[in-house]
Amino acid sequence: MTDETNLIAWSLEEVAERHGDPTQAVYERLFAQSPEMAELFVGDKTGAARGEMLAVVFQTLLDFSGAGAFGANMIRAEIVNHENLGVPPKVFVTFFRTVMETLRELLGSDWTPPVAAAWDEMLAGLDAAIHREAAV
């Protein structure tokens, strides 16, 4: 594992340990920033779909920042799947940033410069991958 992957993993684990499942906090932030996104989850009465999606996002983030075995392909596939729902690729950039912002808020002063740098580096790579896919 790289230092970046270790810091990303640490931040995810630390949030889970301190706050439990961050799904509600992530989606509250997303819907506050992009209210139109809430309409896509109108059928998700229990929040199960949101929780499942966030779990996949966490796995993808860890892979993308580390081994790279499937993360880029997962993003590519989900861009296509979500386009069929009317979700433009740029929403992925927004969503990944929303995840980071939520974790940063939940960790407070433990969101150190090295953790921030690891997330910034990973998000830059994700942004580039998403823009490549959107251009195809």
Rank of each mutant, 00 (worst) to 15 (best):
N6L: 14
A124H: 09
F64C: 04
F92L: 06
A116C: 04
A116R: 05
G108R: 03
P22M: 09
E39H: 07
G51K: 04
T60H: 11
G71A: 12
G66T: 13
P22K: 06
E13C: 06
G51Q: 07
L85V: 06
A55L: 12
E4M: 15
G125H: 09
K90M: 12
E105W: 03
L7P: 00
G125F: 13
F70N: 10
D3T: 15
E13P: 00
V15E: 03
G20H: 05
T2Y: 15
P114F: 09
S11I: 08
Y27E: 07
V115A: 04
P114W: 06
V93Q: 08
Q24T: 12
A25N: 04
Q33T: 09
A117Y: 02
E52G: 05
M37E: 03
N6I: 10
W10L: 14
G86H: 07
E39P: 00
K90Q: 14
G43L: 15
M122K: 05
L107G: 00
W10D: 10
T98C: 11
M53R: 05
F70G: 06
R50W: 02
G51E: 06
A72P: 00
G43Y: 12
E28Y: 07
E78K: 10
R29S: 05
P113V: 12
V115P: 01
A67S: 13
V15F: 06
E121V: 08
